[in-house]
Computed example of a mutant assay.
Amino acid sequence: MDFLRLVRIVLSSFFGVRKRASHEADFANINLVLLPFVAVFMAACIGAVIYGVVSLIAQSTSTLQGF
């Protein structure tokens, strides 16, 4: 449950959709030592998804052009 809370905190901070009251309540109850590790992991996951989508689109358009 704590890991899911950390993921929610990180994702909401990436997209900037937090209310001040929920932000303060979450930071009062979490382990701040694990937060940077979860943030780096989530950033790598988001980057991998973006890279995969772009790679898939680039691969499919290059085969349509006949090169």
Rank of each mutant, 00 (worst) to 15 (best):
S55M: 07
R20E: 09
S12Y: 07
A44Q: 15
S12P: 00
V7W: 04
A28Y: 01
C45Y: 14
F3E: 15
P36R: 02
F41A: 13
V53W: 10
H23I: 06
F3A: 07
G16E: 01
I50Y: 14
N31H: 14
L35I: 07
N31D: 15
K19N: 15
A39R: 07
V49W: 06
N29S: 10
N29D: 10
N31V: 13
R18H: 06
N29Y: 10
I30M: 14
N29M: 10
D26Y: 13
F37L: 08
F27I: 09
H23Y: 13
V17P: 00
R18M: 14
N31C: 06
F27G: 04
P36E: 06
K19V: 07
A48E: 14
D26K: 06
L35C: 05
L56C: 02
V38H: 00
Y51R: 10
S13V: 08
F15W: 13
M42H: 00
G52A: 04
L56W: 09
L34V: 08
R8G: 10
V17K: 07
G47F: 03
G16P: 00
H23P: 09
N31W: 05
L6P: 02
V38Q: 01
F37Y: 13
R8A: 11
F15C: 14
V53Y: 14
V33Q: 11
V10K: 00
M42Q: 04
F14D: 01
L4T: 15
L32N: 12
V7G: 05
V33S: 15
G16Y: 03
S13L: 06
H23W: 13
A25Q: 10
F14Y: 08
L6Q: 03
A28Q: 09
L56A: 15
A25V: 12
K19Q: 11
A48H: 08
V54P: 03
R8S: 13
V38S: 01
F14Q: 03
L11H: 03
V33N: 15
E24Y: 05
A43I: 12
N31S: 13
K19L: 14
L35Y: 09
V38T: 04
L11V: 10
L6F: 12
A25N: 04
V10F: 01
L11T: 07
D26E: 12
A21K: 13
G47R: 01
S12I: 01
E24K: 06
N29G: 12
P36D: 02
A44T: 11
R18A: 04
M42W: 00
V40N: 09
